[in-house]
Design a protein around this nucleic acid. Sequence first.
DNA 1: TATGAATGAGTTTTCATTCAT
DNA 2: GATGAATGAAAACTCATTCAT
Lengths: 194, 194, 194, 194
Amino acid sequence: MERRLTQRGRARRTELMTCAARLFSDQGFHSTSVSDIVNTLGVGKGVFYWYFPSKDDLFIEILRGANRDLRRRQQAAIGDEPDPLVRIELGIRATMQWFHEHRSSFTLIQFARTDDRFTDVLAQNQEVAIGDAVRHIKDGIVAGEIADQVPEVLAEAVVGVTERLARTYLLERDEPVTEVADAAVAFCLNGLKG
Amino acid sequence: MERRLTQRGRARRTELMTCAARLFSDQGFHSTSVSDIVNTLGVGKGVFYWYFPSKDDLFIEILRGANRDLRRRQQAAIGDEPDPLVRIELGIRATMQWFHEHRSSFTLIQFARTDDRFTDVLAQNQEVAIGDAVRHIKDGIVAGEIADQVPEVLAEAVVGVTERLARTYLLERDEPVTEVADAAVAFCLNGLKG
Amino acid sequence: MERRLTQRGRARRTELMTCAARLFSDQGFHSTSVSDIVNTLGVGKGVFYWYFPSKDDLFIEILRGANRDLRRRQQAAIGDEPDPLVRIELGIRATMQWFHEHRSSFTLIQFARTDDRFTDVLAQNQEVAIGDAVRHIKDGIVAGEIADQVPEVLAEAVVGVTERLARTYLLERDEPVTEVADAAVAFCLNGLKG
Amino acid sequence: MERRLTQRGRARRTELMTCAARLFSDQGFHSTSVSDIVNTLGVGKGVFYWYFPSKDDLFIEILRGANRDLRRRQQAAIGDEPDPLVRIELGIRATMQWFHEHRSSFTLIQFARTDDRFTDVLAQNQEVAIGDAVRHIKDGIVAGEIADQVPEVLAEAVVGVTERLARTYLLERDEPVTEVADAAVAFCLNGLKG
DNA sequence: TATGAATGAGTTTTCATTCAT
DNA sequence: GATGAATGAAAACTCATTCAT
């Protein structure tokens, strides 16, 4: 049942989501209990269930929110750039930057992939993301700048490189974003050109 | 405590590991209880704790075993091939094939990355895997066949592409291994050459 | 604290009681939360506690009201009929009719009997009801129309028949009231005459 | 999943059922928590869930067991008595005696009627019980000893009288069984003869 | 070796009630 | 009078692990 929230209510809700996202990413979804969350905020346990029907639902909302945000960032970065290859480059860089700023979200997405209850949400998100990339790649193929391969496969490859470098160098080793982005861009553009 | 096992004992142990691996990958590590495992095998709960000190330990052993197996496969595939690029190609293909044959292991590795208790084991495994790839890449750079970039970064990129394509096309969509491997190889070799 | 209510206030109060009675009888007392009640009416939770000190109190009031109503109906039906047996018959018929029109109340009374918190209220109600019947029966014995047995026991038997037939045929099978009442009357009058 | 129980296991299971039945009937089903049950027995909470999948299931088993027992008692009492009216009388007396000895079961049945989760079980039980009575009544009608009315309705009336007198005089006032049974028999036989 | 039984801390969730605005 | 927010004790249930036999 959708609840009508006051100003204060909306603030609480956001507070819960932020707090939970951090705890989930730090200790893992399963190791974070609802008690952990409400204790961290210093509120009663009922508060949680006033705003979310269940722990799972909260997690799903976090996932959805993260994806919405990432996509917004990508679109903003790409703007109305005409060259498909440049669009892809801008997309990779924006993604890298966003992962850098939202490490916790990154971890959550990784986890969500391993639990049946969340794979659906993820699948929807992925479809959109891959769809975006595919459009640019098709443009690039038409323009003769990208090898004539199945665009979707190329898109997956680009995403694979970006995510992997982000995890290893941004999350685990905390290296400078720009350099990591440079490496990803270089590898991907070469991979695409064929 | 290391236990001295009889012939039959070793068989039981393996049976437990195989069964657990399948259940973990099907339903997730957390959703699979020790009871699930022993019930599936139709044995008592004591059996489990006779062979493994804890559920975590069992999982770690599974991970270790999987990695040992994958590496063996890669090395066998590469043999003493002299050309570094071909070595990389053979490695990618062997990996793809192995993922195809051991889907469940793939899922488990994905999961292990999201839980602090297992990241250590994974890190060790990864180090070895990346180390292998790095050697080939360095050879390739020396031979002038690969762009002069940080070899480790390139290795990560290759692994990123391989894993991603494996997950999307082998696990989720069950497409023919060879084609997926072809795509991975093509993208990676281009990405490496610069 | 007795509250002085405005016109509108009394309406609200009645609305709450009616709504709660329906929910209690549909889903059971325990399975109906105060939230359910106020949500059904589309009001805030404070409203409930403005009109009733607690959920239990509300239920008790509902019980009292139902009984008051039933008794009024019986008395109206009996009027100043002189023949004791006819008085009993009219009472049975009125009761049956009332159960027919107030199924939910019937269910609530059944439930109340199983919970210590409400048995007191019920006991009082029962005493009155049995008392009424006992008077008619005594008159009947004096008039030689009813067997000379302990009047209270006979009264209980009559109530037993009436309630049972009401539950089985009115509530569970929704059969026509008159026929059910006929059957109850026939059995009871025979039972009484001895 | 059906569990294979040892001697000791079966004893525990019975112990749990007996204890729970008593607590349910003393304090009510809802007011008795699983913790109450296991604490009363001085065992851990897991024990409960080792033997029963849920609190509801336990309750259902108790209901089924009680009914099985009551019916056995009725059949034993009736034996191969040829006269239908005497059979009914013996049935009423046996029932009364059983209610006397199993007060707690009586309360439980009353409660079960008010909760949707249990009405199914009850309905099955009732069908059997009414069916038994109906057979005797039909015989009685054929023999000309019972009024020619719908047998099922008569059966319901008999049950109504028996239950009501049992509740009022055995449970609430603890009067001697034989006298209560006498009263029930007298009223019912008269009611049946018409 | 193997089994069924037992433990109990820990988890998610519910809900009657109170409170600040 | 009325609302949404907050409380927190208590409930049902889970499950890794240990133990007696």
